[in-house]
Design a protein around this nucleic acid. Structure first.
Lengths: 148, 148
DNA sequence: TATTGTTATACTCTATAACTATA
DNA sequence: TATAGTTATAGAGTATAACAATA
């Protein structure tokens, strides 16, 4: 193994959770007080995965089908998601995020981006492009991995 | 604002959660089936913060004192943590991770490091030092931020 | 007969309120 | 009188089991 690998892995394990805590705190703060974290994560998933089924959503959330079913009940009641029987297999449902759900997500994302930007601002342009290039490398590696 | 800031923030918001999901999945898998996430996080906190009080731990976990108290009951019963009244202020308690708790944490951390290393291995030495340097910059920025 | 989603019920986790001991 | 921690009670969130509808 290359002698640069272990230190790099150690850096990742130390720094990534640090940054993630800030991002999560910021997102949660802006998600709207009356939406639970799994509900918020559902919107994120459905914004990337149109017409997902209940079981697909449950799999992403790491929750059981009954729990997810009730969670979706609430999202539908709030008009953040629509639920319709699939035309191909009428046992299945098709979940879809509504424009209102998209707006909610966009607002949270925008607020978080502004917070991150203010933190990055003090860095030089070189340092920021350096970081972006590193993140591009890491994205390639972890894009497939996190599907598992 | 520098024109490199917004793209860099956007990269962070996309890539950090991606990496974090892999790290968390790996840590959880290795934490031992019968230990809850807050309990596991307690061990992490106490490994860095010897003789912490109940309220300090509760603050870190984002839980209330009663909830944390019961959680600690269980950690003590499993002999992963000790709880003793403080000698300076006998209202307070001093929490301490046991050698057994340290071992559990070390094993989880080691397994995760190996997993991360295997993912990073394909990168060149230059790319890995590049990433480490970027992470050092980010660590400075987010070290203080995540205390809040 | 198997699969998708839902409903019924029970349990775990967490919080608020009340209490004890120490400062 | 205020503070640190604990105990008692109640509420949210989640799971397992049983069920209905479709394949």
């Amino acid at each position: 193994m290359s002698e640069t690998t272990a230190p790099c892995a150690s850096d990742l394990l130390e720094v990534i959770p640090l940054i993630f805590r800030t991002i999560r705190a910021e997102m949660r703060q802006r998600r709207g007080a009356d939406l639970s974290i799994p509900q918020f994560r559902s919107l994120i998933f459905l914004s990337r995965q149109p017409r997902a089924s209940l079981n697909e959503l449950a799999g992403y959330l790491g929750l059981t089908a009954p729990t997810t079913c009730k969670l979706v009940d609430d999202l539908v009641a709030r008009q953040l998601v629509t639920r319709a029987p699939s035309t191909l297999d009428r046992r299945k449902i098709e979940l879809e995020i509504t424009p209102r759900g998209v707006d909610l997500l966009a607002a949270a994302r925008q607020g978080t981006l502004e917070q991150l930007s203010s933190l990055l601002e003090p860095l030089s342009a070189e340092e920021k492009t350096h970081i972006s290039r590193s993140l591009a490398l890491l994205r390639q590696i972890f894009a497939h991995e996190s599907q598992k």
